[in-house]
Design a protein around this nucleic acid. Structure first.
Length: 490
RNA sequence: GGUCGAAUGGCCGAGUGGCUAGGCAAAGCUCUGCAAAAGCUUCUACAGCGGUUCGAAUCCGCUUUCGACCUCCA
């Protein structure tokens, strides 16, 4: 088993990953709220945690990955009178609330498929676990850490913090939170029902305008934002599991509250390792609706957004994300994306080259050393940029081998092939781009390339160059190689 | 205002005390009828000012700039 070290937000250090019950690993990821099309901010989490998922499996763990779908309980905006976010959208579109949730769940799955992200073991929906959430709330009340007020149930943060470190995960001090820090006072609905402004809702009373509501011991309502993750992680992974992941924006209050709820219910901190990926910016600015720079995933792949110079493929996006470490911010720009696009194609081209290497009686390159460096990079808190740097070292060596500047034995060659494919395809989850050429076009272009070869053979360079120039003008680039000509469509 | 984090070469982005990633771009070379593609080579940076040290991008302090979060709200 590889010694994987990961950064734990809870302890704020990098430590060796040790599962509770080897070889089993339980992971819970906070999934999307399905009320809109996935945008660029939604892709990073799935991609970085996919590498974690794939790597754990590769080094021999049996992983259960749970990623929820949030389809209840979120509000449209502050001006809204507490109407469920999904219900609001449903009314506008004249659709059933669950139809809206399903529509955007499908869109999310489509994105994951395009990015070649492995499916979750279990993908529970909040709306399908109302009973579990109610039971958990009842236990928390029975344990004395929550109270009912006017049909809603709130978590008693002050009481909890007497015996527990509320704020440890997100690095907050409750006294500071209570003080309010002097910023503008936010108008939160139901604030007067709370014993303390820091208390958060476990269950919220629903008015008649709520299309999505359920009956409960406290009347009709819907679950609070945080309780679904606590209830579903407990159900499928147990009161205590290995890794809980999500975006840094969820640190507070979401994950902090999860810890408080779960601890108040089960007397255990739910997760041993808390992992958080950083956020995405574009051209140095944060993505925000007000800046009109939020890019939908579909727009990104189609290239039809004002900030995009061209379309980028899912694999380019994935490779681009993995070229940065997951705990740093990541800036989108056309220049950076095009750099990633070219780098990726070089990485994939080397895989093709590797297939044509002829073995020798001796190796002049150190295959074990090259591959061990790749493992070491991932073991150091999933450092994919370092891994990719080492893969490019391998690329250079592959090209040396192809040029005859280095030699390799058959045994080492096999090891190199297997290792390279393991890292590129199995662990990073990259794949060759699907060719979207239709067979008619392919046949026509190949015919023109054949004619060009013939013209060149006859020293009719005027004709051969004419074919090249006209194809280039159509966006078809000719690449002459030793083995003949190929082309790509730009 | 508070808390946390970040500032690296033309661009992106690793690196936590000496051995100074990687990708893209650029330049040179190889290949080639020419060009492109592909491959090889080259390109020594760490926001500013102090300090610690034999030695700092890396540790400490201050300054500047930027980002995330600050409770039902993506």
């Amino acid at each position: 088993m590889q010694p994987l070290k990961i950064y734990n937000t809870y302890t704020r250090d990098i430590s060796l990953f040790t599962p509770i019950s080897e070889p089993f690993v339980g992971i819970y990821l906070c999934g999307p709220t399905v009320y809109g099309n996935p945008h660029m901010g939604h892709v990073r989490g799935p991609v970085v945690f996919d590498v974690l998922h794939r790597y754990l499996k590769h080094i021999g763990y049996k992983v259960r990955l749970v990623r929820n779908i949030t389809d209840v309980g979120h509000l449209v905006n502050d001006s809204d009178e507490g109407e469920d976010k999904i219900a609001k959208k449903a009314r506008l579109e004249q659709l059933e609330p669950m139809e809206v949730a399903q529509f955007y769940t499908n869109a999310y799955h489509s994105m994951l498929n395009q990015l070649n992200v492995l499916p979750a073991s279990i993908e529970p929906r909040a709306s399908g676990h109302i009973i579990e959430q109610i039971e958990m709330i009842e236990t928390i009340i029975a344990n004395g850490y929550a109270y009912e007020s006017n049909g809603s149930v709130y978590f008693d943060v002050l009481k909890y913090s007497k015996n527990n470190d509320y704020g440890k995960l997100s690095g907050r001090v409750l006294e500071d939170l209570i003080a309010g820090a002097g910023n503008e006072v936010r108008e939160l609905e139901g604030q007067e029902e709370k014993r303390n402004p820091n208390d958060f809702a476990l269950w919220k009373k629903a008015g008649p305008e709520h299309i999505m509501q359920w009956s409960s011991p406290w009347g009709n309502g819907f679950p609070g934002w945080h309780i679904e993750c606590s209830a579903m992680s407990k159900k499928y992974l147990g009161a205590q599991f290995d890794i809980h992941g999500g975006g840094m924006d969820l640190l507070f209050p979401h994950h902090e509250s999860e810890i408080a709820q779960s601890t108040a219910c089960t007397h255990q901190n739910p997760a041993n390792y808390w992992m958080h990926h950083n956020m995405v910016t574009i051209n140095g600015q944060k993505m925000a609706k007000s800046l009109n720079n939020g890019i939908g995933v579909d727009e990104f792949f189609a290239g039809n957004h004002a900030l995009l110079e061209k379309a980028y493929t899912p694999m380019t996006l994935k490779f681009f994300i993995l070229q940065a470490h997951y705990r740093g911010t990541l800036d989108f720009s056309n220049a950076a994306l095009q750099a990633a696009e070219k780098g990726l194609s070089r990485l994939l081209a080397a895989h093709q080259t590797l297939q044509n290497i002829t073995p020798s009686s001796a190796s002049t390159i150190q295959v074990d050393d090259l591959l061990n460096k790749c493992y070491a990079a991932l073991n150091e808190d999933l450092n994919t940029p370092i891994l990719i740097a080492h893969l490019f070292d391998i690329v250079t060596n592959i090209n040396y081998l192809a040029a005859g500047k280095q030699t390799i034995t058959a045994e080492d060659l096999e090891k190199l092939k297997t290792g390279y494919e393991t890292f590129v395809f199995d662990i990073l989850g990259l794949q060759a781009e699907k060719s979207n050429n239709n067979s008619h076009l392919d046949g026509v272009v190949k015919m023109l390339l054949d004619m060009r070869v013939e013209a060149k053979a006859n020293k009719n360079f005027a004709l051969s160059d004419d074919i090249r120039t006209k194809l280039t003008a159509l966006g078809i680039e000719i690449k002459d190689g030793k083995e003949g000509s190929s082309y790509s469509i730009n």
